[in-house]
């Protein structure tokens, strides 16, 4: 599965468009990480726990999108976009979507 966020796959021809595929996940942060974040709010710096949390969440969302594309018989997803939204103050939704295509 080739995933790109441009409208083509370099060097390959698109033979069929299969429509929108998407994946999402909603993640909450946990208390331990929140305490660390509270400390970091005094001195500044990177919140590594959150960086990992969001990376994992994005991988999960991407995996779901790829699974949907596979079930449609696609071998590439083009023009992929990511978006993040905070649904409540403790959780965020990671959403990824793109167009499933068949390339030759």
């Amino acid at each position: 599965m080739i995933v790109t966020n441009i409208e083509t796959v370099p060097g390959r021809d698109i033979t069929q468009h299969l429509g929108l595929v998407q994946g999402n996940t909603v993640r909450a942060k946990h208390v331990g990480r929140d305490i660390m974040a509270g400390l970091k709010n005094i001195v500044g710096g990177e919140l590594k726990g959150y960086t990992e949390l969001l990376t994992d969440a994005r991988q999960e969302a991407t995996r779901r999108m790829v699974e949907e594309a596979e079930s449609k018989g696609a071998n590439a997803i083009i023009n992929v976009r990511f978006s993040t939204s905070s649904i409540t103050s403790g959780a965020s939704e990671l959403y990824v979507y793109g167009t499933a295509v068949v390339i030759a």
């Binding site: 790109t4 796959v9 005094i42 990177e46 919140l47």
Partner: peptide, 15 residues
């Protein structure tokens, strides 16, 4: 031929 999605992220705290 080919291409791949690459990404990088960081969460920062304000002091």
């Amino acid at each position: 031929q080919g291409g791949a999605l690459v990404q990088g992220n960081v969460v920062i705290a304000v002091d």
